[in-house]
């Protein structure tokens, strides 16, 4: 059965998970090549956790099939579990125990002897900069330390496929960067990472392939660059010497573009988005005609925010406010 497919870490075919009437995952098909970071991007309540829990054998799909590391989710769940690790969205280690005890505990469960489990625990604590907190109960850890111990617990034996459910939600920028470094190091060493995020920037920074999910449906997929160019929206950013020029330019652009220009008075800059790039030259030309001095200008790739707005017609909710898709 091994040789079914060597190239994909995940192959999902029309996966559905219904909770009563609500279809949390509503027919998702996707393929994740081995060795990459797959970013599953969507707002709160989109169905990301549900999808991951199905792929990690925790939830039985209502409909559909999937293969994980070449093993059938329904028929070869034990083999799937042997190849994956899951770092859940919430407490994924025992908060009552110390960090070291947690790692030894997992080490014993995956089959290390007591001695091996201890030395592996100490190795991981050192690698994740947690030596000083080794003997402290995890519930007394800071947010960043929690996330690091969560991930360390997932790689006691390095998995072929690691699921990370919102690994940086609620972290400060420094801790977030530490998690990113860990993810990059994992992928460099051959682990495939399937991560979910609500942060567009995170998917942009980390993911080789991004799937955008909304209300249980995969609404777009591709590399960050592909998603951006498929939307075709670009922004022209122009800086001015003084406020007067800025205001004049604003009134000119209001007539030229369908979307109203965004004005940043602190930086004396204006940003306009457009589908047709030739419009940028026209805009600059018009400013020259009106004798408005341009200090600097640049074309920018659209952000994933733009992507989300264009596909769904609404912005991605970045805050964890409402939980339901409706």
């Amino acid at each position: 059965m091994e040789q079914s497919n060597k190239t994909y870490a995940v192959e999902a075919d029309q996966l559905v998970k219904a909770f009563g009437k609500e279809r949390a995952v509503d027919g998702i098909s996707l393929k994740v090549p081995k060795g990459i970071v797959y970013g599953f991007l969507g707002p709160n309540g989109a169905g990301k956790t549900t999808m991951i829990r199905m792929l990690a054998t925790l939830l039985k799909p209502t409909e559909g099939h999937a293969k994980v590391m070449g093993y059938d989710l329904a028929k070869e769940a034990d083999d799937v579990r042997q190849s994956i690790s899951l770092t859940g969205q919430f407490a994924s280690v025992d908060e009552e125990l110390s960090g070291r005890e947690n790692l030894i505990f997992i080490g014993r469960l995956v089959g290390f002897t007591r001695k091996e489990a201890k030395s592996r625990a100490d190795e991981l604590l050192a690698a994740f900069n947690l030596q000083d907190a080794a003997k402290r109960q995890v519930k007394k850890y800071s947010g960043g330390m929690r996330r690091r111990i969560d991930i360390a617990a997932s790689i006691v034996t390095s998995p072929e496929l690691l699921f990370l459910d919102e690994p940086t939600t609620g972290l400060d920028p420094r801790s977030r960067n530490e998690v990113w470094d860990i993810v990059r190091a994992l992928v460099k060493n051959g682990t495939t990472v399937f991560l979910t995020t609500q942060y567009l920037e995170e998917a942009d920074q980390l993911a080789d392939l991004i799937g955008v999910i909304d209300r249980g449906v995969l609404i777009a997929e591709g590399t960050s660059a592909e998603l951006k160019s498929s939307i075709g929206v670009r922004s022209l950013i122009i800086e001015f010497e003084d406020e007067q020029d800025l205001s004049k330019a604003e009134s000119i652009f209001e007539g030229m573009f369908t979307q109203p220009p965004e004005v940043d008075r602190d930086h004396l800059s204006i940003s306009v988005t457009m589908k047709d790039q030739s419009k940028a030259a026209k805009a600059i030309g018009e400013l020259a005609n009106q004798q408005i001095a341009v200090k600097d200008f640049s074309m920018q790739q659209p952000s994933l925010d733009d992507v989300f707005l264009t596909i769904t017609g609404k912005p991605a909710q970045e805050e964890g406010g409402e939980a339901n898709g409706e």
């Binding site: 042997q82 995956v110 690698a127 790689i155 034996t157 390095s158 190091a185 060493n189």
Partner: peptide
């Protein structure tokens, strides 16, 4: 450095 070293773990123990 120690992070990457800690990840390259060749031996997988047999199941408990």
């Amino acid at each position: 450095n120690s992070l990457e070293k800690s990840i390259t773990l060749e031996k997988r123990p047999s199941k408990a």
